[in-house]
Amino acid sequence: AHSQSHLPSHFMKGAIIQLATGELKRVEDLQTQDFVRSAEVSGGLKIDSSTVVDIQESPWQGFVTLHFVVGEQQSKVSIDVPPEHPFFVYGQGWSSCSPERTNRLFSLSCHRLQVGDVCISISLQSLN
């Protein structure tokens, strides 16, 4: 038995992703516009631009801490993720702190996530 059942299979190459438009795409075929359009047609969610401002070793062993500034408010948000966790970078596509691990675990081709990269994130749309 493999001990990899905890891995999120939605990042596995070939995983089928449903866009908010109903369209189905493979995870490796997604493009920036797919996320932007999905957020447009899905009520309540909006896309934020989240810029990586720092990448550090996490106090949690085997994790990295990513520091972002998020959205128009430039809010500071930090998250701890495993180094193979992919993020979608505007105009570039899937990127992770360890493209080698992402490729090994998910067969997903990635760029290396770097400070200055602008990732797609979501948040709740505020009602005006």
């Binding site: 939605h10 995870v27 998020v70 809010s75 948000v77």
Partner: peptide, 25 residues
Amino acid sequence: NVEPRSVAVFPWHSLVPFLAPSQPD
């Protein structure tokens, strides 16, 4: 009728992080 084979379909928003500011600066 053929029983449809179950294929996992994941929603687009499961792929991107939900980054909501926890507190205003």
